[in-house]
Design a protein around this nucleic acid. Structure first.
Lengths: 191, 191
DNA sequence: GCATATGCGTCAATAATGCTGACCCATAAG
DNA sequence: CTTATGGGTCAGCATTATTGACGCATATGC
């Protein structure tokens, strides 16, 4: 479909080295950029993400919660003291959508809100012990999935996985990710 | 939370080799299996998948379609002649959920159904030219995202990415993925 | 100190995607 | 001829997301 005969041929064999015209890129060849390889990436992301989230979802429905609740627990646990606004930026959803899951989590004692010290309009979010325990239960499930995948693939593959996943993100997400990685616990960073 | 002081310390430094008790696993160390690394994987998958699908969603809403429509177009395009049952297995949704997106796609001429040759109860699915054109438009968007990520990361990283993503899948998904990879085009394989 | 901006909460209405349970039709297979 | 299977469809419901509009408390600039 709109491909030349040559491109069609290249799509079939995996072993033929085929340097892409003029491209002064480091390393071997660029076969991994062919259409078939890119479509495979779509499949991998679909099945991988589906099964990765699936194991957690199973447990969550038993607790009458959805994936959205877990995301809140995860990111609040990751950055205790996070503001509502920052959480919204991370989740990329609207205030209303967040409210619907956050409110029950607060009411049922999984999350606490405390007024910001410097800006008392803010509601800094943190997990209660109950919330942390729940988050951990869900995490244990995904942990096994990830550990199996990481262990089977090996350290080099894991590093590659990280690089590619980072590359799939927009610049915004990369910055947010940095915030999550830095400053392990103490909450309160400002843009 | 529930970690020993030693574990806490290990969570901080990246460079301390820490052989995991008795584990005769090949290769360096197992640092990449620490809790912090696994939580990072959660973040990577969340942001990566979000942005990967996001670029396509943008275009899809303009066409009054959702992600579910795209998934159907993608997998039907990947395996022309696929049966409804096989598609259901791939998507892991119910017949009713599929019907809601498949029906409009057929009515609006994106997908055609033809009775199976050997079993006339089956409705073999395939894209029309219109459907293939649409699928391609959406693909072009994701293609750029993936290509950028792959190119920046390099061939070794890409291979690692694939290994890890495969590892995240359950055995069922891995088998389905094999079906998609083998037999490039000719539809009609049986279990 | 007052006007305005910001952080957060909330109401109402709507859409997309998924689910279960129950049936139906056409065709395959014993 | 009976039963199983592939597929379609109806009704009802849950979750997660959206937009638009408003209200309240607190910061901030002049």
């Amino acid at each position: 479909m709109g491909m030349t005969a040559d491109a069609e041929t290249a799509t079939r064999r995996h072993t033929i080295p085929e340097p892409q015209g003029a491209a002064p890129v480091a390393g071997r060849n660029l076969l991994f950029l062919r259409e078939e390889e890119l479509r495979l990436a779509q499949d991998l992301l679909f099945f991988g993400y589906r099964d990765f989230t699936g194991v957690a979802d199973q447990l969550l429905v038993e607790l009458n919660m959805g994936r959205a609740h877990h995301r809140v627990l995860h990111f609040v646990g990751r950055r205790p003291g996070i503001t509502v606004g920052d959480l919204l930026a991370i989740l990329s959803i609207t205030k209303q959508s967040l409210g619907r899951v956050l409110q029950p989590l607060v009411e049922e004692g999984y999350v606490v809100q405390t007024p910001g010290a410097s800006d008392r309009r803010q509601r800094l979010l943190a997990l209660t012990e109950k919330g942390a325990a729940l988050e951990r239960r869900v995490f244990e499930r995904q942990r096994e999935t990830i550990m199996r995948a990481y262990r089977e693939a090996g350290p080099t593959a894991v590093e590659g996985f990280r690089r590619v996943m980072r590359g799939l993100m927009g610049t915004e997400a990369r910055d947010l990710l940095k915030l999550l990685e830095d400053e392990p616990q103490e909450g309160g960073r400002r843009r």
